[in-house]
């Protein structure tokens, strides 16, 4: 299953490192990354492959949200189909 991860918040040292480490611990593969500073906010979008992870979606979501609280950013994860269905015919 593919999912899209979005990380938004105040820029800081170690956000990418912290998120990537957490994803590796969850056995989640990163397929694509884009990162920018938008309106002064750190904004990162990752496309993930969850198929190798032992953890259920709800568990991954919770772990990442908790990690976001530690890193002081908002981390969301949503199934990829939500975005593809909305923005493509």
């Amino acid at each position: 299953m593919k999912a899209i991860l979005t990380v938004i918040g105040k820029d800081n040292v170690g956000i990418i490192a912290g998120v990537s480490k957490q994803l590796a611990d969850l056995q989640v593969n990163i397929l694509d990354v884009s990162q920018t500073i938008m309106n002064g906010y750190f904004t990162m979008i990752m496309i993930l492959d969850l198929s190798a992870s032992q953890e259920k979606f709800a568990g991954i979501k919770k772990t990442l949200a908790d990690k976001g609280a530690v890193l002081n950013v908002q981390i969301k994860i949503q199934r990829e189909e939500l975005f593809t269905s909305m923005h493509s015919i």
Binding site: I4, T6, S34, T36, M38, T43, I45, I47, K76, E80, L82, F83, T84, M86, H87
Partner: peptide, 11 residues
């Protein structure tokens, strides 16, 4: 998937 499309959906 473009960044602005992802962010539009979330917004």
């Amino acid at each position: 998937m473009e960044t602005n499309q992802v962010l539009e959906t979330i917004r």
